[in-house]
Design a protein around this nucleic acid. Sequence first.
DNA 1: CAGTTGATAAACTATTTGGTTGAATACAAC
DNA 2: GTTGTATTCAACCAAATAGTTTATCAACTG
Lengths: 113, 113
Amino acid sequence: MSTDDELVDRGFAALADPVRRAIVARLGRGPATVGELAAPFEISVQAVSKHVQVLEHAGLVTKGRQAQRRPVRLEPAALERLTAWIDGHRLLAEQRYRRLDAVLGDPSRRRDT
Amino acid sequence: MSTDDELVDRGFAALADPVRRAIVARLGRGPATVGELAAPFEISVQAVSKHVQVLEHAGLVTKGRQAQRRPVRLEPAALERLTAWIDGHRLLAEQRYRRLDAVLGDPSRRRDT
DNA sequence: CAGTTGATAAACTATTTGGTTGAATACAAC
DNA sequence: GTTGTATTCAACCAAATAGTTTATCAACTG
């Protein structure tokens, strides 16, 4: 098993690469085999296979098997974990900013605190 | 200026590092100077300064100035951009899975398509 | 069975990245 | 003006990463 923090770590690291983000975007529209995923790219199938493994290790996708094919599908729950992490901190900051705007004058456009 | 895609790229890359995520978490509770941000870590202030620059370059934080201090504050809008990216694809997939579950039998626990 | 297809493994390379130390800059305070 | 504090710049190093090529493995196809 992997700790929750490790998964967040690997999750963001996985999404840091444009090729992997393109793969995620493609998978949002439905599962695809490694070969299909590789087609749009100029890089080798092996490189794409590695990218998929990175995504898999982060829990963002899972691989099935159909004969020699490995259909890859997106795992929404893992994506949600990442948005949850971001939102946790974002909402805190937004709330605080709003509270300050309420107390101080100008209800938008502030630079301090 | 930076293209939107570049910001998403740098945004996820920025969040891929545990030190930078800890910084974001800290900033969620309020602005802090570079020195304050560095305190909890065992690494050098210079290293933390670099991390903050990475976050800044990704648009996730902005730096103000108070004498020689550089108070750093979180930029919620940039964080939101990242969650929006993720959610776009996650929601697509979830919708599709739900539609399939409605058509086929078992309304949960499915492995194909 | 021989050949082909889909995916992965292994070994290697170039680049990026996260850290270091030491010097430079900028402002404050004495 | 000298000293102290906060931050950044520059040069450097080690480890991680994204890519390559060659080889291997597994399953279908004729």
